[in-house]
Amino acid sequence: MRRAEQVTFGGSDLDRSAAERRDSDGLAAALAGGAGVIALWQGKPLVAGDPAEGPCRLVRLPAGHPVLSAATEAPIFLGRIEGAAVFAQDISGWVPPEPVDEAQIAAFLDPTVQRHPAAPDGSAFRELRGIMTRLDARDAELAATARALWNWHRSHGYCAKCGAPSEVAEAGWQRLCPACGAHHFPRTDPVVIMLVTRGDRVLLGRSPGWPDGMFSLLAGFVEPGETIEAAVRREVFEETAVRVGQVDYLAGQPWPFPASLMIGCHGAALSDEITVDPNELEAARWVTRAELLTVFAGKHPEIRPARRGAIAHFLLEHWLADRLD
């Protein structure tokens, strides 16, 4: 698919400069020399701009900025942009001056905004899902990388081999166990997401707990010992009893919610009848191309489209425009 890297989080000119991760002296010098640091609070990046009004951009702070004073770990080295080093640092220990609604923070899409009194004017911590289409490709890749690493460190503080507390290493790209010497690396979970079609119809489903009316493409984790093609066929059959034949890769999308790689595929359905597994889906249905046009126009009485910025929206949009080449 020639347009594959146009998907949100699809990549930019970030040089991940992996060899530098072991150069602690060089990275310290880069920080002291004014390298930019992206602040994260509960996984939400500090950004300038209001997504309701226009584009947003990641705020880059100098090391030692007052906003970063609540950090308990060293900055993570994300890479270099046009030669300039970029880091991310977690300040989740900071307590916002306004009350925090924990239920909204944990919601499917956190609508809350937190403003640090020491942050630059016009900046705030915002949920990445809500701003991902308002960031340029460079900031989107940096934000996705930073959030995915934050999620990993938050959930992997103990050695999986012996259970002892592990320590951050390699500028945030490893955790080492001082007790048994085990090395642990950031985890990315492969997920297949399927544009399953039969003639001029596409198969859509909705999971329990999604916003009212929201339908999307079927998706599921790849299991150990399984190919991508087999995962597509298995997941679709398990969730809907629809059988799939030919499977082709279309596009991939890093999805840091919490740490997935979405593998977008096109599957040709061999059967029509749907039997929903209630443990997996709340509903599933075939939708014609003409009907999907009304969904994207916001005029369908029952269906809301997949979220803009998600690979499901990207694939459906390109299927509608007959641009899956």
Rank of each mutant, 00 (worst) to 15 (best):
R175T: 06
L176P: 00
C177D: 03
P178V: 04
A179S: 04
C180I: 07
C180S: 05
G181I: 09
A182L: 05
A182N: 05
H183P: 01
H184Q: 15
F185A: 06
P186G: 05
R187D: 10
T188P: 00
T188S: 04
D189I: 15
P190M: 10
V191A: 01
V191S: 04
V191K: 08
V192N: 02
V192P: 01
M194K: 14
L195C: 02
L195H: 06
V196F: 01
T197L: 01
R198G: 00
G199N: 08
R201P: 00
R201F: 01
R201E: 03
L203Y: 10
L204E: 00
S207G: 00
S207A: 13
P208F: 03
G209I: 15
P211R: 13
D212Y: 09
D212C: 06
D212W: 14
F215Y: 15
S216T: 14
S216F: 10
S216Q: 13
L217V: 08
A219M: 11
A219V: 04
F221W: 11
V222E: 05
P224S: 09
P224E: 07
T227I: 06
T227M: 05
I228G: 03
E229I: 07
A230E: 15
A231P: 08
V232M: 06
R233T: 09
R234P: 01
R234V: 03
V236N: 02
F237Q: 12
F237W: 15
E238T: 09
E239A: 12
